[in-house]
């Protein structure tokens, strides 16, 4: 059924507020001139076949001094028209966004933040030889260079700093009573005891097993280091000795 004409009345006034003769049947309602409170808008829709429908809209206007706004509180479901309340900002000359402040500045800030973050992430992982992950001792020794057949003192020292020093301290003095000293510790005389402790840990204490992390050569290197550093003179051990204790 075609709509022929729409007459819109505001608050029981006799004269129509607007008359729409052709689509789109959209009414833009400006609350700026209306008093605070509830208002009624009647849309009388004339159809091509002469029938007439009456639709009632309820809308409210709020005012605080010069500030105002309106909104539709109740709209008929079946009305073939659309009523839109105009926002006060739409009536003012729209403020143009300043290109520097609202486009360049935020984009620059965003890029600076993300760039810094990328740099930090890269630097963080490459600051330590072998990468942070390797330094944290979480990487299995899959792709690493083969260690020399006779492990030198240097390898043992590096492994000690990585794995042992946080408890037994870099100078081997430990933190008694929880973490015993290694420097001058007579228990270190027994090579097999030291190897087994490193490989399997000591149940019931804080000493963890390192068998999964250290192959025979590495374990031999670190045990040799412990037995010869800080004035200790208990001698080196060989990878074969470690293999026997696994």
């Amino acid at each position: 059924m075609d709509v022929a004409r729409v007459e819109v009345f505001l608050d029981n006034q006799d004269e129509p507020f607007a008359v729409l003769e052709k689509p789109p049947f959209t009414i833009e309602l400006d609350p700026s001139g209306l008093a605070q409170g509830t208002h009624y808008l009647i849309a009388v829709v004339h159809y091509a076949d002469g029938s007439v429908d009456r639709h009632e809209y309820v809308f409210e206007v709020a005012r605080r001094g010069p500030v105002y706004a309106g909104h539709i509180a109740r709209a008929p479901i079946m009305a073939p028209i659309e009523v839109r309340v105009v926002d006060s900002v739409e009536l003012e000359a729209p403020a143009r966004p300043d290109f520097f402040r609202y486009a360049l500045l935020p984009v620059l800030l965003f890029l600076i933040f993300v760039g810094t973050a990328t740099w930090l992430a890269y630097y963080g992982e490459h600051a330590i030889p072998g990468g942070a992950l390797a330094a944290a001792g979480q990487v299995q020794a899959k792709a690493e260079k083969p260690t020399p057949a006779t492990p030198g003192l240097a390898d043992g020292k590096a492994l000690y700093q990585q794995l042992c020093a946080s408890c037994h301290q870099p100078d081997g003095r430990g933190m008694p009573p929880s973490f015993p000293a290694l420097a001058g510790n007579e228990n270190l005389k027994d090579a097999e005891y030291v190897i087994k402790t490193v490989l399997h840990g000591k149940p019931g204490t804080a000493m963890p097993p390192f068998a999964a992390q250290l192959d025979d050569q590495k374990a031999a290197a670190v045990v040799s280091y412990i037995r010869t550093a800080w004035g200790n003179d208990f001698g080196s051990v060989t990878p074969e000795e470690v293999a026997r204790s696994r």
Binding site: V89, P94, A95, R96, P97, D98, Y102, P106, L109, F110, F113, V114, A117, T118, L120, A121, G124, E125, I128, A132, L133, A135, A136
Partner: peptide
């Protein structure tokens, strides 16, 4: 060609929204 107070706040908040998320991506020992 239209800026409102709400849009201004939104734009700068989105800068922080994207940028701060990257803080959770650094790996340190």
């Amino acid at each position: 060609r239209r800026i409102t107070g709400l849009l201004g706040v939104l734009i700068f908040d989105l800068v922080a929204l994207g940028a701060l998320y990257t803080a959770g991506m650094h790996y340190t020992v």
